[in-house]
Write a protein that binds this DNA or RNA. Structure first.
Length: 425
RNA sequence: GUGGGCGUAGCUCAGUCGGUUAGAGCGCCAGGUUGUGGCCCUGGAGGUCGCGGGUUCGAUUCCCGUCGCUCACCCCA
């Protein structure tokens, strides 16, 4: 091979770009249906924007450099800090709730693998300035629809839902000190991969007694009712659970019950989530999470922005694209050619160009042969390009101001007046 | 960042127990006589056998390194 591009960065050949466009357009359409408006920010940001709040897991993997003005720069790894800044600057003026979406290209310096590159496009949908559980449900519904839009359904993927508020209260009940709740939640997330013994050791470290440890390990197997029963004595648990129940009821109103499951094992790695958290997973589980998000009511204030509650999710194009390819849901072929105009002899070239021009003015995609090859070869070119019609201009047509129009799918061909051809478009 | 597997034409792959012109299918290009595609036929282009070094009379084939891809770990958008 000759020189290749940077590892983890993609070249988009026309067929690749077609898939990317398919995904991005679909997302835009779904976001629009939910009443979100699009925004964007710069792909480069000051490094400090991320070092403060994002947590070490993101900072370790930043793409950074120093610019000619000696500024420390990062390629944006996520959109939320940019969103926080932008919303912050106009927080007073914007009607609430603020429902914004963006499809930024994001960058991470880490080892590329299947479904994880150093760059991807990510749909971000956020709602700022609303605490009602109805907004939680609508956001999750939008995330689910952003996947369903491409032809996947509850057979293919599922949404795991939990609530950090609830889990935090549970952890407090079993004896985790208040100041270490977030650590315990992150441990819970990590336990997915490390196993129960690791979790038990970690919880003991955090000051949980043996009974409490057992309780937490058990809790991970409970459904919502089981969980409330287990902590029947706790008013706080009951209240937090009620909010989740309300959430599931709303998901039912959205007609999406089949997609959502309570899963107390889900915690999400990022430190800033405060309430609802969710992830979309392919059912077969071979790929990574398709999407993840949740409520982060304290984040905007924490980064010096307005004190507004918020929630949002991110959904990348890489895993979703892999999934669509696997399921055969990638659109067939893309062509920009509607009509191919054939000229039979060089004498008709000018007339044919004029016809092409008039069709283009009407919005048709038109291609022609450049070299005056045989009619047969021109037809073959029309076929290769996927033209839906081939329009032949020969001596007869030129004389009669007509064109022979062939439907490439059916093979049906008829002679029509030029005027009719142009105006019939 | 750690460890394993892989790396031959645009794509999917064959092949060389080290030997002198590296193959197939698909794709691409040109023809198959002057007004019609999808089939077919003929011909052609295209490979420093990832890159660098070593062993050897000789390496695409063996060894080392490196880069890339990939899987697992790590981590997660």
């Amino acid at each position: 091979m000759t020189s290749s591009g940077l590892p983890g960065f993609r070249d988009f050949y026309p067929e690749d770009f077609a898939l990317r466009d398919h995904i991005v357009s679909g997302w835009r359409e779904v976001a629009r249906r939910y009443g979100f408006v699009e925004y964007d920010g710069p792909p480069l940001e000051p490094l400090e924007l991320y070092t403060d709040k994002s947590g070490p897991e993101i900072v370790d993997q930043l793409y950074t450099f120093v610019d000619k003005g000696n500024r420390a720069i990062a390629l944006r790894p996520e959109m939320t800090p940019t969103l926080a800044r932008m919303v912050g600057a106009r927080a007073q003026a914007l009607p609430k709730p603020i429902k914004w979406f963006s499809i930024p290209q994001l960058f991470r310096y880490e080892r590329p693998q299947r479904g994880r590159l150093r760059e991807h496009f990510q749909l971000n949908m956020d709602i700022v300035g609303e605490t009602d559980v109805m907004s939680d449900a609508e956001l999750v519904a939008a995330a689910i629809d952003a996947v369903r839009h491409f032809g996947l359904d509850s057979e293919d993927f599922t949404a795991r839902v939990s609530d950090r508020g609830l889990i935090g209260i549970v952890l407090q009940e079993v004896g985790v000190p208040k100041g270490r709740i977030v650590e315990a939640i992150l441990a819970l997330d990590k336990a997915e991969r490390q196993g129960d013994e690791w979790l038990a050791a970690r919880l003991t470290e955090l000051g949980v007694d043996e009974a409490g440890v057992r309780s937490v390990v058990d809790v991970r197997e409970h459904d919502l009712d089981g969980l409330t029963a287990h902590f029947a004595g706790s008013r706080d648990v009951a209240e937090a659970a009620d909010r989740l129940r309300a959430f599931f009821a709303l998901m039912s109103d959205h007609g999406l019950s089949a997609y959502v499951t309570f899963d107390p094992r889900l915690a999400r790695g990022l430190a800033y989530y405060t309430g609802l958290v969710f992830e979309l997973w392919e059912r077969e589980g071979r790929l990574r999470a398709i999407c993840g998000g949740g409520r982060y009511d304290d984040l905007l204030a924490a980064v010096g922005g307005p004190d507004l509650p918020a929630l949002g999710f991110g959904m990348g194009d890489v895993v979703l694209g892999e999934l669509l390819k696997e399921k055969g849901l990638v659109p067939e072929r893309q062509t920009s050619v509607d009509d191919f105009v054939v000229y039979v002899t060089p004498a008709q070239r000018s007339a044919a160009i004029r016809v092409a021009r008039r069709l283009r003015e009407r919005g048709r995609g038109v291609a022609m042969d450049y070299r005056g090859r045989s009619v047969g070869r021109q037809f073959r070119a029309a076929d290769q390009l996927g033209a839906s019609r081939t329009i032949v201009i020969g001596p007869d047509e030129e004389r009669d101001q007509t064109a022979s129009v062939r439907d490439m799918a059916t093979g049906e061909e008829k002679v029509v007046p030029l005027i009719g051809l142009i105006e019939g478009v």
